[in-house]
Design a protein around this nucleic acid. Sequence first.
DNA 1: GCAGGTGGTGAGAGCGCTCTCGCGCCCGCG
DNA 2: CGCGGGCGCGAGAGCGCTCTCACCACCTGC
Lengths: 345, 345
Amino acid sequence: MTDTAPRPTLEAVAARAGVSRATVSRVVNGGDGVRDILVERVRKAVEELGYVPNQAARSLVTRRHDAIAVVVAEPETRVFADPFFALQLRGISKELTAHDNQLVLLLTEGRDDHARVGRYLAGGHVDGALVFSLHLDDPLPELIQRAGVPTVFGGRPGWSGDRRDVVYVDSDNRGGARDAVRHLAGLGRTRIAHITGALDQTSAVDRLDGYRDVMADADPRLIAEADFTPAGGERAMRELLGRCPDVDAVFAANDLTASGALRVLREAGRRVPDDVAVVGFDDMLPLAEQTDPPLTTVRQDIEEMGRLMARLLLRGLDRGTPREGAGDTRSGVVLPTTLVRRASA
Amino acid sequence: MTDTAPRPTLEAVAARAGVSRATVSRVVNGGDGVRDILVERVRKAVEELGYVPNQAARSLVTRRHDAIAVVVAEPETRVFADPFFALQLRGISKELTAHDNQLVLLLTEGRDDHARVGRYLAGGHVDGALVFSLHLDDPLPELIQRAGVPTVFGGRPGWSGDRRDVVYVDSDNRGGARDAVRHLAGLGRTRIAHITGALDQTSAVDRLDGYRDVMADADPRLIAEADFTPAGGERAMRELLGRCPDVDAVFAANDLTASGALRVLREAGRRVPDDVAVVGFDDMLPLAEQTDPPLTTVRQDIEEMGRLMARLLLRGLDRGTPREGAGDTRSGVVLPTTLVRRASA
DNA sequence: GCAGGTGGTGAGAGCGCTCTCGCGCCCGCG
DNA sequence: CGCGGGCGCGAGAGCGCTCTCACCACCTGC
């Protein structure tokens, strides 16, 4: 672990190029209004000295940081057990990188961390925040909103209904759910059950709503509540089999849940899809491809969600490519989903 | 997206508390050498004004940033397809948070990004870096080392043999592999095969070495090369069955590979574990629990690896709890693994 | 009772950058 | 040939903080 050598300053570059600090600064920041001869000379000096601007000094005066916080509130390990989070992060990273912004990651667990995150964001260390608010009762979004930091949410926050200034990006959970259920209906299934996700999350609520859109007059006993986990899926599937032995299809709120349901179905001697067809949600790989049978599911473009979140935020900050998809700063952007047919339905 | 209000400065707090800037600064940074009466007065003023120090201004003079870069070089999506990365990140995040450091995430893909990362690190925006170098020929580690930023590597870098100043944290891949193979041997298996990982990664090489430690005089045809993917596992397993039909056990380089192997074995009508016992590596959940049969595998404490990396780096920077596990700044730290017995072996 | 600490405080000089301003130069026009 | 107006550049004032240093009590010891 070596110490970093003393880095050359603007002053040094200026001296070497035989110009003033101001001119070097202009060149470094685009070089408008400087004669080509000088631009060239300064560039050369920068090169030779290996000059890199001191971001701290720059931020001090510009009050920008070219840094965005990504806040992932996840008391449970769920987010970590699937690639969802990582993919979104990657989309975000790509977009931020393309616009020369840094990504400051804040992972929170438990209430204690909320204050810390609030303080950090209020502290003006970053220009904006991307926040994943997964739970309806999560105080974090409110807290962040209050910190006065420009924010884009990943997933519809629970309270967005009453606030038109909330910007978020979400998948079309409801539409995707409708597609899944319609697909099952199209297969001739009539006793289509739904295993819900954790209903304190908007995604679970929206998927349930989608199910209801299609199955308006369905037997309410065909709905079993679970929590997005395989174990929850198993439990719910057992319930379902006990309650409605004639069930011939299941739409599970996500692939993990579906995998649990599949296992119970197999144990119960029900053939999939012959006896019971199963559809999941997420298209979580490799899981969805490797269940037995491979899972028909609803795919969402997670990486694109991340990218879009970043783009929206940057645009709100007057960064990013101007007018690209002009005026698209609607408060909520919903990305389409697609049904991926495999063997389970 | 509201604009942030003008924040109070040290000066403002000083005025309100009736002291000098210097005194406020002292209080904000611990309050040593200031009378309790004044400390109290300053604290009150800070509270009332909602003062938060301007990190940019502070960094400008202290030359510290209390920020650590986490560099994840991953051209392939592999890292994103499993929770490995996320868990490690979480461990890192916990440790950094505990010491009030920020986590700047740099994801790279492809050669172009290397220069960008190098520039960023050399730019002195962060105090140190945690780098995941997964490939033997990755130029990134060298590049980073040259940038003169204190660095801890995740996973043994390929070239660490010749450089004693390289600090890294790794799992005991070799020892874990030995345990796995010994376990299979203990089951009375004699034709134990190994499906390797991508051999341009040290973890794959080390696991292969562990296999060889136990199976010194094994039939070389029992070794099939794969790449950590399920598809690779399938391919290798087919090869193996063709080459050595009498194979009675398989140690796969990771769980993904093992899952592919399991599928091929099932198709081939071999019962697991009766005909062929299978052991994986990683204990990747939920996959490992949900294969058919559930996978016996080698677990590594991934979160702890992350935490340890952060701790080592912070300690190297003279931060972190002093003397905690004194003098433990060895160049390489290897974490133990444990065999998790499930049904497949 | 005075030299020599000692512990608490404030004044002030930067850290490296941006940005406003004004000055000089050269152009075009009258 | 003189004068107004750009345009290109440099001087200098900060941004908000830390940290050294000098200063001013007050306290100890001879």
